[in-house]
Design a protein around this nucleic acid. Structure first.
Length: 174
DNA sequence: CGCCAGATTGACT
DNA sequence: GTCAATCTGGCGG
């Protein structure tokens, strides 16, 4: 993974992140999981985005592409990656993972951080040259579906949720 | 400092 | 399907 990947629009990053493998090293052992569901979040124009507020989250969304953003919501840590060029507050939320070499339900944004042991300590860290968490390329032999985002009170008119078609590890839709 | 919304989850009628 | 537990971050609702 190089930084240029994250220097594009959130929608493209969210879509292209599908199928890639998230690796988290815990006690010297790598936990690998395939990204199967993501959502794109934009700047102040996006009613559901934390970039609307003038706080640490907006500041973080303005940091370098590839910066890890972790924020707490209802007692859960949610994992995001900052993307696009400086001056644009955008991020992609990781909503579901398919565990490849371990057991654990990762079919939800709060669940995957629990089983991948990701917490606020990763906030503002960089995804590159990181010894504890990184992303690896993988085959992309699947069909991509999109829908409106899940759980947001006010969504945009555009479909910004992307997921792997017919994958059982995608989060449950309510 | 207190209040409240929220990109959630799990339990329950 | 409904509902409440639980906590972080932003704001003075």
């Amino acid at each position: 993974m190089d930084k240029s990947f994250f220097l594009q629009d959130a929608e493209n990053v969210a879509r292209d992140l599908l199928g890639k493998v998230l690796v988290r090293k815990v006690d010297g052992i790598q936990r690998k999981a395939r990204i199967v569901e993501t959502e794109a979040y934009y700047d102040e124009k996006d009613p559901a985005s934390r970039a609307r507020q003038n706080g640490d989250l907006r500041e973080t969304m303005l940091m370098d592409a590839g910066t890890i953003l972790v924020y707490g919501c209802h007692n859960n840590w949610l994992l995001n990656f900052v993307n696009n060029k400086k001056g644009k507050a955008e991020a992609v939320l990781i909503r579901a993972l398919q565990p490849l070499n371990f057991e654990g339900r990762c079919n939800g944004p709060g669940l995957l951080t629990k089983f991948m042991l990701i917490d606020k300590s990763f906030h503002k860290q960089n995804l590159f040259s990181n010894k504890l968490i990184w992303i690896e390329e993988a085959d992309k032999e699947f069909e991509i579906k999109k829908s409106f985002r899940i759980g947001v009170r006010k969504d945009l008119k555009k479909k910004l949720r992307f997921y792997v078609k017919d994958n059982p590890f995608v989060s449950r839709n309510r």
